[in-house]
């Protein structure tokens, strides 16, 4: 008896469950069907937030809080001793910012970063566009080959590439000085010269980044209908006119994206001067990020470095908004 009761009890239980389950699924379920469907399709708050949680938690911890903290720190004299005891730091108002205005090194780094961006971005975007237009003119199978070659530097570590370029530019045994001596010329000391160090870094940055621009432009070019080009050609447009009047205007959205992304990247330039010149000679390649790193992690003037970070961020925001405005208006 004792052994059969649960089974007996279990059987009707199970069947009743199944029956009631089936009943709930069939009669009220069918009636509720459209409503249930609409409900579940229109609002899924639970799953939506659940799926957002990992990103939001990480975003909050490693982005939102630090962004606010940097802002707060930029008004303090946060130093080495505060790393262990952050809350004993003292507020000094705008002192960091007023100091920045008179800081020769920082002003130099701002100038150098602008130099790097103003020359480097058009060079990189232009070279990428040039490569894309050439590759789009039907080189058949070779296109993939060239595309891989032009894009290859993008995937490699900036540090490794900077180490290699330092040797390429070496005045004694470098690739360029060796090539120069083959034809009886001598090459200058690129990285040791105040005038040539920054242009050398710019050329290297263009070499490394033009692949990204090229791939994006290639995708953009393929979006231009062949009929449009055909029509232009029938109307007697030459290669240059076709480029000016068809390609460039239709590529504006791509141009916008490429310029904004390249500019943001270039404004943050750090690895190249860190490895190749350490900011020298005589601060000629000191960039804002490098100066900030030195202040923050060599001298542990973290409050001061935070103010630098915010100045750079403000510049980035302003330049991005300016670009959005300049490049977007013309599409209309």
């Amino acid at each position: 008896m004792a052994t059969t009761t649960p089974s007996r009890r279990g059987v009707p239980d199970r069947t009743s469950k199944v029956r009631s389950g089936a009943g709930a699924g069939s009669s009220p379920g069918r009636k509720r069907g459209p409503k249930l469907r609409r409900d579940r399709l229109s609002v899924q708050n639970g799953p939506g937030w659940l799926f957002s949680t990992p990103f939001l938690v990480l975003f909050l911890t490693f982005m939102a809080v630090p962004i606010v903290a940097t802002f707060v720190m930029s008004f303090t004299d946060f130093g080495l001793r505060n790393v262990a005891d952050p809350f004993s730091t003292e507020f000094i108002g705008l002192e960091n910012y007023t100091k920045l205005v008179d800081d020769e090194r920082f002003l130099t780094s701002l100038f150098n970063t602008s130099y790097f961006v103003i020359v480097g971005v058009p060079l990189t975007v232009g070279a990428g566009l040039f490569a894309a237009v050439l590759l789009n003119r039907g080189v058949g199978r070779l296109r993939t080959f060239f595309r891989v070659g032009f894009y290859a530097p993008v995937v490699t570590s900036i540090v490794a590439v900077a180490v290699v370029w330092r040797f390429v530019l070496d005045p004694a045994d470098g690739l360029i000085s060796n090539l120069a001596s083959e034809v009886g010329l001598s090459s200058p000391d690129f990285l040791g010269s105040k005038a040539l160090a920054m242009p050398s870094l710019i050329v290297m940055a263009a070499w490394r980044n033009l692949g990204t621009a090229m791939v994006l432009f290639l995708a953009g070019l393929q979006g231009i209908p062949a009929e449009v080009r055909e029509a232009a050609r029938l109307d007697g447009a030459g290669v240059w006119q076709e480029f000016r009047r068809i390609t460039v205007p239709l590529l504006r959205p791509t141009m916008l994206y490429v310029s904004v992304m390249t500019t943001i990247g270039f404004l943050n330039v750090f690895e190249e001067p860190f490895v190749m010149t350490e900011g020298g000679p005589d601060n000629a390649t000191l960039t804002v990020s490098l100066d900030m790193y030195h202040e923050g992690f060599r001298f542990f003037h973290m409050g001061y470095a935070s103010a630098m970070a915010y100045v750079l961020f403000t510049v980035i925001l302003a330049v991005t908004l300016l670009q959005l405005r300049l490049l977007k208006d013309k599409t209309k």
Binding site: F62, M63, V65, P66, I67, A69, T70, M73, F78, N82, V83, P86, N268, F270, S289, M292, Y293, G296, F297, M302, A305, S306, A309, Y310, L312, F313
Partner: peptide, 9 residues
């Protein structure tokens, strides 16, 4: 770069 200092702390 903007988050570097507080992240380190």
């Amino acid at each position: 770069n903007l988050m570097l200092m507080p992240m380190f702390v």
